[in-house]
């Protein structure tokens, strides 16, 4: 779920922009110049993957993948997600341009955290990697939903109901995302394990 224009007060969206600029700047500093084109190419594959909707009972959900992006890109994840969200905003209007900062914080911080978390617990066996993938995937959505709720909560007392609903709506997504992430990580571990301790970090 992306925050659209007009929801957050201007002060909060400006502050989120400033924080995103800081995060992207730090991310940019850590990455070698020659890796930027590569991260850009990987970013478009994440973007395309997030367009796929999986059926969930009568409706469908699309994956957000902060966990997987964090696990694969490490510290470059924040930059990758910011670029991806910018493109989603200008191409599809998923998330407004004025709320881009808030959306980047909402998805980027969980990605960074999940990346560290994944590397810390993944160990060396297939089983542990798969479990770590599931935890990182689920945790990514949980954190993103919590940050979304926090943004809405700080925007005014009127938004508490919406914040709660948004949090509840993400529970099925957490489960699906955890399962799909587990399978994705297990697949990558078997086929191309070097991707998991990526060169692009």
């Amino acid at each position: 779920m992306h925050i659209s224009d007009g929801v957050l007060p201007t002060t909060i969206s400006m502050a989120a922009y400033a924080a995103t600029a800081l995060g992207a700047g730090l991310s940019l500093k850590k990455i070698r110049q020659e890796d930027l084109p590569k991260i850009a190419v990987v970013t478009s594959s994440f973007f395309v993957a997030s367009l796929i909707h999986l059926p969930l009972g009568p409706t469908s959900v699309h994956l957000l993948m902060p966990g997987i992006v964090g696990a694969l890109l490490g510290s470059a994840a924040f930059l990758s997600i910011t670029v991806g969200l910018f493109l989603q905003s200008i191409l599809f209007q998923f998330g407004g341009l004025t709320a881009l900062g808030a959306n980047a914080i909402m998805m980027g911080l969980p990605a960074l955290f999940c990346g560290l978390f994944f590397q810390a617990i993944r160990g060396k066996t297939l089983l542990r990697n798969t479990l770590a993938g599931a935890l990182a995937g689920g945790l990514g959505i949980l954190l993103a939903a919590s940050i979304l709720a926090a943004f809405l909560y700080t925007s005014g007392e009127d938004f508490i109901g919406v914040a709660k609903l948004a949090l509840a709506a993400h529970i099925p997504v957490i489960i699906i995302e955890a399962a799909v992430s587990a399978f994705t990580v297990s697949f990558i571990f078997r086929v191309k394990p070097e991707l998991l301790h990526s060169v692009l970090r």
Partner: peptide, 11 residues
Amino acid sequence: MGNFFGMLFIN
């Protein structure tokens, strides 16, 4: 779909 995404990312 998990395998599918894995393949997409590796490609």
